[in-house]
Design a protein around this nucleic acid. Structure first.
Lengths: 263, 263
DNA sequence: TAAATGTTGTTGTTACTATAACAACAAGGT
DNA sequence: ACCTTGTTGTTATAGTAACAACAACATTTA
């Protein structure tokens, strides 16, 4: 194929991830604008080689994206886009569900192997995954939860998760600002963390201090949220004694530093 | 690869349709049962060649299915299945939505070409697609809607769609049985269609008469529902005068036949 | 016959699969 | 210090399968 002209490339990519091949996508798109076309017409419109049009149409019929008229020559028509996409998604969702079930069985079956988790530092990619891990940490807290984070992280990603912390556990939050009501069961400390921005290590260059957070549970498990500037965020999680101690010191020292600097 | 032992094949297929390759699926499955494994351990468990494990893991991290621990040697862990599948589905749903939007634009933009629809007979596959077409027919009815169908089709697939018929249009339903209340605005005729079963064309063989339906709108558009025995149902749709006339005669003759046979 | 339809087979291309070999490094033995 | 031994991570390079692109043929229709 020379030129799938005027077809936005990302549309082709999207359709591919729905399980269509390039030809299938082109033929379907072509059919959306011609009503009842013959194989040759489809070939002319879509740019797909005429010989390839036939098997491709077979597959599209199988996938419930086109309907056939059995006159000679055969004529084809596309089902409307919303219906068509729904037909594709139905299959995928079925697969997703059965995969989820099968994987979950494997997951539960053999997971006793809780090997040396304690000394490792895990890197977690993606906000969703980070939130899941945070939720696990909060839910399993037994004595204390400490949060040191810039305000921009708290409302959207953290505060709701904190409701899962058991009642008997103390929760302390250090942040640089607070809007809205203050939940009474949390110890909330608003400190001018923003002044940290003026710390310069490469002289003249401001350190960004946004979308960063540190979370410590029971003085035993720590998570460091790294914003990574607009990109997909990542985080470090560890139960290693060394890193936990470091985090412990970090929280106390930042708290102290900000408290004095405010005076 | 020789033996992806004890991995059900349909699980691999399901994961493939979620956008994973065979290796990606095998590695992810392997990681679900080992906690923090090294590349070599993953190779032993999953059967994937050791050299292939590294790029595969890169892709899995990119897809938010595994997390990394940067000690030497690197150790890897899988995100829980429900979260992992959700991560995959999120991408696909995004693609589906953007594809749907783009296709819809194309669809609306250029669709005036309502060429010679009138003489064609369209074959429609899949119950969902048939229902969509039926809904279109009912919604656009101007004078009359006639339904001749076995009862098993009506409640689950047809009755709700009939509510879209405009008020000024007469609706007549012929079926072999009726349960529940009878909507007053429909003309309902219960006839012993079941006796048709006893019509024998290949002597000694009963003709099935289930899940079949005939729909006629304005004496101009007809749809024939073909049950196709448990499989994906299909239907014929046409605006051709010839086929419409045939359906017209079919409905009246069956009605007459059943009425006399009942006496 | 001419033109168009539908089918078949072959070749190119790509992404994934599979194997082998290599350099870098650590542990252990002489 | 030197040399094995084994492991990690990387690279190169065949093999394979599905798709893409093309050519040739048989079949129908006008």
């Amino acid at each position: 194929m020379t030129a799938p002209r005027d077809i936005p490339n990302n549309l082709l990519e999207s359709l591919k991830s729905l399980g269509l091949t390039k030809y299938e996508a082109l033929v379907y798109i072509g059919l959306l604008r011609v009503a009842g076309a013959t194989a040759t017409e489809i070939h002319e419109i879509s740019g797909v080689p005429r010989a390839s049009v036939y098997p491709v149409l077979d597959r599209l019929v199988q996938k419930e994206l086109v309907s056939v008229s059995y006159i000679t020559p055969k004529r084809f028509d596309a089902v409307p886009p919303d219906r068509g996409v729904e037909n594709l998604m139905r299959r995928i969702e079925t697969d997703a569900e059965s995969a989820r079930a099968a994987l979950d069985a494997l997951y539960r079956e053999k997971r006793p192997e809780g090997r040396g988790n304690q000394e490792q530092v895990w890197t977690i990619y993606g906000e969703e995954n980070i939130r899941t891990r945070l939720a696990d940490m909060f839910r399993s807290a037994e004595r204390s939860v400490e949060v040191l984070a810039t305000w921009d992280l708290l409302p959207e990603s953290v505060l709701t998760l904190l409701e899962a912390v058991p009642d008997s556990v103390s929760v302390d939050i250090v942040t640089d600002c607070w809007e809205g009501e203050r939940p009474s069961r949390f110890g909330i400390h608003v400190l001018p963390l923003a002044t940290l921005r003026e710390t310069r290590s490469p002289p003249g260059k401001l350190l960004p201090y946004e979308s960063s957070g540190v979370f410590l549970v029971d003085d035993a498990r720590a998570l460091l949220w790294v914003g990574s500037g607009g990109e997909q965020p990542s985080a470090l999680y560890s139960e290693s004694a060394g890193l936990v101690l470091f985090v412990r010191r970090h929280i106390t020292s930042v708290t102290e530093w900000a408290r004095t600097a405010a005076q």
